[in-house]
Design a protein around this nucleic acid. Structure first.
Length: 422
RNA sequence: GUGGGCGUAGCUCAAUUGGUUAGAGCGUCUGGUUGUGGCCCAGAAGGCUGGGGGUUCAAGUCCCCUCGCUCACCCCA
């Protein structure tokens, strides 16, 4: 037996109802705000991610699906959605369009990780980016888009956490302050935290170790180190979120796993702080484009895992399950009726009546059992008698009487029967 | 990469201290009705008990290895 690769999923038809609902809802919210769809390749040059995401991040160090293609290029299955969009903006000279350029996407994302609840090697994200404008109102618009999408999906109990990381000119100072604060506390740190103190002290703030969390209460806060422009940007954003009636918590411990963020970072979290809790998050990345081609393009965006969105909809019993059923089932009782059955099915389908045809001749009993299992509203039986008289037997499956009608009046009759009786 | 839990039919689960031919419900198919669905009834198909090795007169059951699933850590969506 060849099985699917670990951490990947087959999405069966019953799951597609809810899946499509999430995408449709997001698409609608995007259209309401002028975010246009964009698609980028599943594959990119490895450099795009290693350079932008950060050499020291776990994503680049151990989670990328990278391989050499037949021409010797190193390619990578995208581990996140933002860098490819920025790359597409630069490559397609989108600075010539009206700024900011607002785009949205649905994309599969790949990370080599041990799978667990809400975490897969291939997962899917809805995401949006606004490029070419540094105004805090753009941050607010991005956050509002994600917030509104969650609301529309019935996920109403999420907490929005926000923080400001400041700009690159002040980051080293903050970093040093953290090292200075935590170094005397080394005896209280676990091995993982000690390693992070060396590699990326910001991540210490994100620890789940209760002892470390306690220490973080008195740790230096990034907002105290940012420059005056970044501080004003953050204050403006909070004011705008208030104006939009979007409740938020300023979380001084919020840092993100990708290195390219500056100023605004945010995350949406469910109330019960479980393990794979972040359902969506993002932030501003005004210096990301520089890493790709040296140009300066302001940007802000988010990504949200569709699988985790669905998990939260399920938790709140908001996951749609019902699927549309076929209206009509056409049953050929004898082999000679199969062409007629297919023909009638086709006629009905052409006038937008969902119809399935039985493929092989069989007894009325098994055909009707099948029609019932499909929850069809009407069955059409065609046997020897009907062929002789050039009629079809139309049987409503609600228990009302079966009628014989001339074959050329089938569509007309079915349409009338399906009309809601008022 | 680290640690815990679990692998019996398509699904959910049984199977006495190790003891005959591994069962049930649901689902699927067929029949009960020479051309009439649901409900009911009957029957059938469907298992190398994840795989390999070991202990034993005897292993679904005990031991080891391995694979898979799952949960958590790490990290993130």
């Amino acid at each position: 037996m060849i099985r699917r690769p670990r951490g990947t999923n087959d999405r069966l038809s019953e799951d597609h109802v809810a899946w499509q609902h999430v995408i449709d809802t997001f698409t609608h919210e995007c259209e309401l705000r002028g975010f246009k769809p964009i698609s980028t390749p599943t594959l990119e040059h490895t450099d795009l991610f290693s350079r932008t995401t950060g050499e020291q991040t776990d994503i680049v160090r151990k989670e990328m699906y990278s391989f050499e293609d037949r021409g010797g290029d190193s390619l990578t299955l995208r581990p996140e959605g933002t860098a490819p969009v920025v790359r597409a903006y630069l490559q397609n000279s989108m600075h010539n369009l009206l700024q900011p350029v607002k785009v949205a996407y649905v994309a599969s994302v790949f990370r080599y990780d041990r799978p667990q609840a809400g975490r897969y090697r291939e997962h899917h994200q809805i995401g949006a980016e606004a490029l070419g404008d540094a105004n805090p109102a753009v941050d607010a618009e991005i956050i509002n888009l994600l917030w509104s999408t969650y609301q529309a999906l019935g996920i109403s109990d999420l907490q929005l956490h926000i923080n400001s990381l400041g700009d690159p000119d002040t980051r080293p100072k903050y970093r040093e302050a953290l090292i200075e604060y935590f170094t005397p506390l080394k005896p209280h740190l676990d091995p993982d935290s000690l390693r992070q103190l060396e590699t990326n002290p910001l991540r210490l703030l994100d620890s789940k170790n209760p002892a470390v969390i306690a220490l973080c209460d008195d740790a230096p806060r990034s907002v105290d180190f940012v420059n005056s422009e970044a501080r004003e940007h953050f204050e403006d954003l909070k004011e705008l979120l208030d104006a939009l009636d979007i409740p938020f918590t300023q979380n001084n411990r919020l840092v993100r796993g990708l290195d390219y963020y500056n100023r605004t970072v945010f995350e949406f979290l469910p109330p019960d702080t479980g393990s794979q809790s972040t359902i969506g998050g993002g932030g501003r990345y005004d210096y990301l484009a520089e890493l790709i081609d040296g140009s300066h393009v302001a940007g802000v965006g988010f990504g949200s895992g569709i699988e985790r969105v669905l998990l939260n909809m399920e938790r709140l019993d908001q996951k749609p399950k019902s699927t549309a059923s076929t209206s009509v089932y056409v049953a050929p009782l004898v082999k000679g009726a199969v062409p007629t059955a297919l023909r009638i099915s086709n006629d009905l389908q052409r006038v937008d009546i969902s119809t399935e045809s039985g493929f092989g001749p069989s007894s009325p009993r098994s055909h009707l059992r099948r029609a019932n299992a499909l929850t069809a509203k009407i069955a059409i039986l065609i046997g020897e008698d009907e062929l002789q008289k050039n009629v079809v037997a139309i049987k409503p499956l609600d228990g009302s009487d079966q009628i014989a009608v001339p074959r050329d009046q089938t569509v007309h009759t079915v349409r009338n029967l399906l009309k809601p009786s008022t």
